[in-house]
């Protein structure tokens, strides 16, 4: 019979032995060596029955198929755009997945997306050698105009969204801003006024710093409390 050697929700560092025994299963952020389960990153230990998991506290975005991401155009090639989405390799947005318009051969592609344009796209495929393909075909995928773009830690994105989107809908409701959260940790905010955008930015930064605490929705609700009045006055 194996045993857990660390407390649930505690911080683990690489090389730390989390559990002993073959009856536990390693999930993300950990690996098995002989009969021990060992952490491979800095993160919060999450024990779910027999599953030992580590939620990383830092690190780059790990691309997954189907994720909605926000990135900027860093290069234009003859058959598409190269987009930086904040992971190790750049992603490629091919012409055929970029727009439903007819694009003639040899046409100037910067007419559609130019350098430094920011796009919301979906990852259509991740190959074994980490080549990332993007698509712009789908609901809510577009080029971004105006607003603010801030960086959050990719591993903390689930907290910004909340359970069934509870946190993000709270933010949208209280600040009156349009918010898009990319799975790569980039968050786009656009509101009626600078004040409301600022409020949303502060709230997201707060969520990012407090991501591993409990009762976060209540804290954010309290933090945003005053903004309802601002909205009414404005």
């Amino acid at each position: 019979m194996g045993k857990i050697l660390v407390e649930d929700k505690s911080i683990a560092v690489p090389g730390e032995i989390l559990a002993e025994g073959m009856d536990f299963l390693p999930a993300g952020g950990v690996f098995r060596e002989n009969d021990k389960i060992i952490a491979s990153q800095i993160g919060i230990v999450n024990i779910d029955n027999r599953l030992v998991k580590l939620i990383p506290l830092n690190g780059r975005y790990n691309p997954k198929r189907g994720d909605m991401v926000i990135g900027d155009v860093v290069n234009i090639t003859f058959n598409g755009w190269v987009i930086d989405i904040g992971c190790t390799n750049f992603a490629v947005l091919p012409v055929r997945d970029a727009t439903s318009d007819f694009i003639d051969k040899g046409e100037d592609l910067s007419r559609y997306y130019g350098f430094k344009d920011i796009v919301v796209a979906k990852i259509s495929n991740v190959s074994k050698t980490n080549m990332i393909d993007l698509t712009m075909k789908g609901p809510g995928l577009m080029k971004i105009k105006g607003g603010m773009l801030i960086d959050a830690t990719p591993s903390r994105v689930p907290r910004i969204i909340g359970k069934q989107g509870s946190m993000i809908s709270l933010l949208k409701e209280r600040t009156g801003c349009k918010i898009i959260v990319g799975q790569n940790g980039k968050v786009w905010i656009k509101g009626e006024s600078f004040e409301s955008e600022k409020k949303a930015v502060d709230a997201i930064k707060m969520i990012n710093n407090l991501a591993h605490t409990t009762g976060l929705t209540d804290k954010i609700s309290e933090f945003l409390g005053g903004s309802e009045n601002v909205q009414k006055e404005g």
């Binding site: 560092v13 690489p14 090389g15 952020g29 690996f31 060596e33 060992i38 491979s40 990153q41 800095i42 990383p56 506290l57 830092n58 690190g59 780059r60």
Partner: peptide, 11 residues
């Protein structure tokens, strides 16, 4: 390296 979030077997 650990601070950068790179998976490691040990420090």
């Amino acid at each position: 390296l650990a601070d950068a979030g790179i998976p490691m077997r040990d420090l």
